[in-house]
Structures are given as C-alpha cells and as structure tokens.
Design a binder for these strands. Sequence first.
DNA 1: CGGCCGGTTGAGTACAATCAATTCTGGTGG
DNA 2: CCACCAGAATTGATTGTACTCAACCGGCCG
Lengths: 247, 247
Amino acid sequence: MALASNSIGPIIHASDPWSPSPRRQLLDERKRARLARISSIVRFEKNDRIYHKGAVAEAVFSLKSGVVTTYVPIAKTSQYVTAFLYPGDIFGLSEEGRYANSAKATTSAVVYRVPVAALQRLLGKDADLDFDVIIKLCEEITQAQRHARILVQKRAVSKLAMFLDLQERLQTARGEAGSEIFLPMDRTAIADFVGLSLAAVSRAFRALLTRRTISCRDRRHVKINDRADFESLIGGDGGLSISRGGA
Amino acid sequence: MALASNSIGPIIHASDPWSPSPRRQLLDERKRARLARISSIVRFEKNDRIYHKGAVAEAVFSLKSGVVTTYVPIAKTSQYVTAFLYPGDIFGLSEEGRYANSAKATTSAVVYRVPVAALQRLLGKDADLDFDVIIKLCEEITQAQRHARILVQKRAVSKLAMFLDLQERLQTARGEAGSEIFLPMDRTAIADFVGLSLAAVSRAFRALLTRRTISCRDRRHVKINDRADFESLIGGDGGLSISRGGA
DNA sequence: CGGCCGGTTGAGTACAATCAATTCTGGTGG
DNA sequence: CCACCAGAATTGATTGTACTCAACCGGCCG
C-alpha cells in the first residue's frame, strides 16, 4: 500500500458514448503501468507553456492534476482558446507532425508526457488500449462541438450562461459536487473561449448579477440562484448533457 | 477483377496527424472486407434524414458517395450545422447511447451503415483497425476546432472567406483539384455553419464580388481572383492547413 | 507608497440581425 | 419554346448588440 492506486500512470477520464454509463477512469492498472513505463511526469507552474503551435509534436500529454488551456495565438495580442483541460483529459493533438495549438498551465499542473513514437508502438498492439483512446477522442469531439455551440450564440449573456453551464456540468462529472461553480481561468481566458471581448464578458456577468440570476462569492466562485432564468438563456434546449456520475 | 477495388466495404479517408503524409484511404482490403461483412449499404435521396438527434444510436456510418450534413435542430425554425461530410468521412457520433446530432443527405448519398454492437466486437480485437479509427477521430477533432475558428470571427466577410478557404482545402485534399470551389450546400446551410443569418451570407458574397476578390460562375461555383486580398481576410495567419495530396 | 495587472465601466460607433419586399433560378407543364 | 410557379437568394431600411477606445477601480507585490 505504498502508493495509492491513482498514482502509477496516465489516466483517461471519459464516459462511453455508446451506453449511458457514468464518467469513469478508463485505463486499468495493467495499461497504466504499461503507459507509465514509456512516459515521464512533468510539473508546470502557472502560466508555463507546455508546447506551442507549430512545434514538432514529439509527445502527447495526459493531465494528472491542475488545469491546462489550449489556444491558438492570433496576431501578437490576441488568442483564441480552444479548450480548458482537467485531470483525466489528454492533449497534444498534432497535424502533419506539428502541434495544432499551444498549451499552457492555467494553474500549476502535473502531466504525463508520452512520446508519440513509443505510444504508437503500444497502440498498434493493444486493442483494448486503443478502444479507450477511441472513447476519449469521441468525447473530445463532442466537447469541441459543444464549444462551437457556445460560439454560435449571438447574445453575450447566452454565451456566458452556456459557458457557466458547461463548467458546472464538467465539475459534477468530475465528482466535485457543490452548489458553487469554480472558474480556474481569468476573465480574459473566458472571453477568448466564448468569443467575446473582455468588456463584453464583464458586462454579461454584471447583467446576470443584477438580474439576480447568479451571485459571486468572488471572481472565481459563481452560484446560480435563478435556475429557470438561467436555463431560458441557454436557449430552451438544454440539449447539451454530459454524463454525470449519478443519473 | 469483377469489382473495382474501391467497392468492397467502408472507407476512411484521413491523414496521419503524426507525419506529414498525404491524405489517403486508411483501411486495407482485409479490414474493408471484414467491415463489409457486418455493414449494409443504404442509399439516401437529397434531403432524406439519416438519423436524428436523441434517437438510440444503433449504428455509425461511413460515407461512400455524396454529401451529408450534420446539424443540431434549435427551436422549430433554426438549426446549427456542425459539419459537411464527404466520402471517406465517418459520422453517427453518440453520447450516452443517443445521437448527438442529426444527419441528412445534402445530395443523394450512399453510406455504409455499421451497427455499433458488431463494430465494438471488431474494435476490441483488431488493434490495426482501431489505430485507423483513432487517426480519423483526430482529424475530426481538428475539423471541429477549425469550425470553431470560423465561428469566433466577427466580420461576416472573414467568416465567409474562411469557409471558402476550408472548402477549397477539403476539395484539394480529396484530389478534386481545380481552380473553382464547388459548394454542394445552399446558402442557408452555409449561414447555419458559419453562424450568420442568410441575409448576412448573401451580403458577404456580394461584398467579395464587388471587391473582385471572388467571382461566381453560378451560385455553387466560386473562383478566387485576388488571392492576396482573400488571405488578408482570413486573418493573416493561414495557420489552418489541411494536408493535401501533393506537398 | 507607488505601480501594475486584471477587471470594470462609460460613450460612441460599427456591424450584423430582423423583417419585409423584390428578384432570381430551376423545374414543370402547356 | 415559353409561361408560370415555388423556393432560394438578394436587397433595403431599421434596430439592437457588442466592439472599440479610453478612463477608472481595486487588490497585490515590491
């Protein structure tokens, strides 16, 4: 019992798209051990770059703890955030051998670094592992489509509401239940994720606050007071569900 | 030699994200034959629904010919288009056992229908097949992120330019080289894909036409005249590359 | 105490949404 | 071959919303 069972190798957290099962850790001990043998653990401090777009993609990553942001730099000043990653997520997607986006640590973070060459060798052999990866990639696709869904919204309050909703669902899916939504990223990152200016995000927060739809303990802790009003902003659909542990 | 080699089973067209190789058909004859045994061929006429969001996802699909659109219905009147699919693409992604979006034929189309139960059995055994699927899913992720990239743009002409650029790249990646871009979908579908109103798309086309940046033989055939101006609208980056057959 | 960074707020502007009227296009039947 | 029709697409006028730019606040660190 020297090491806790959650400390021996990369993890992949996801839910099977083909059955209504709860989100869970996909890799069993054997696979984690096998991956552990070819990977290394790297720690990053807040704001550290993990890799940058265009660099030769020699490794993929599995997030062990902390929060990581992937983004595409645009011009010199602005960036477009593609995703916020949490423990159990994998990242480091490449295109033609080069990273398709940049990644940086939003909080201090610990990641497993898996060289692609070694990973490919494993993937070619172990159909079980492949299957787990397939499941995770399917989840990433729905995540990206969910993101797109936020971006098409035109009203700022709707975008913000959908963003908060997304974060809340991710949080409960991770098992961090609680009535408050925690936002590890700053307002600028939110703006770059939902496709608004920083000013617009700020105004949208203000609008939701004065409507008493939400309340903030501080800048990073949000609570939803008027659930009905909140849902109405999302567009009546609510069709974006993420499998939670319970139901 | 009774049947041409391209007619015996599902196809998956994609390029390996880990090496700068051209886009190609991933599945070898053996795998296609194996998939063919568990799948059926279905033909859809223009505007036929292939499946709809929320239905139990019993099968995934591989597009053999034609163009398919996936979308999410919003309210009664509007929809949000998630992707335009071409031969060699796979679709039918589910979430908790139900389709995450709807799909319909944009032109008449022929698809391979693969029941998930049978597919899962194959995937659990054949690591090679799994690997091909992983490659394709990686491509779909970058596609979704590219789509998101279009949606964040604020100016209508930029969105349209990026859309045209995307279609052109897809076209050359498919090997259908030619100086004209062919748009199999109607203006409404374009509007729903780029996140604009139909009117705004129309005005954006007009703007590009009067600027002589593009010209249209008819509504579905576009040619880019002023490449420099065109690129400038995309945001100077041009960072969205899709591997083409040649380079 | 001062500066700096992240965030908020204000005023004016630009751009796309909306609604509605009109034109274009492709298909059908005389 | 042409007249006609229906749906798709264009265009116009108006309105709304978010962007921009810029000033201002508040906490944190030196």
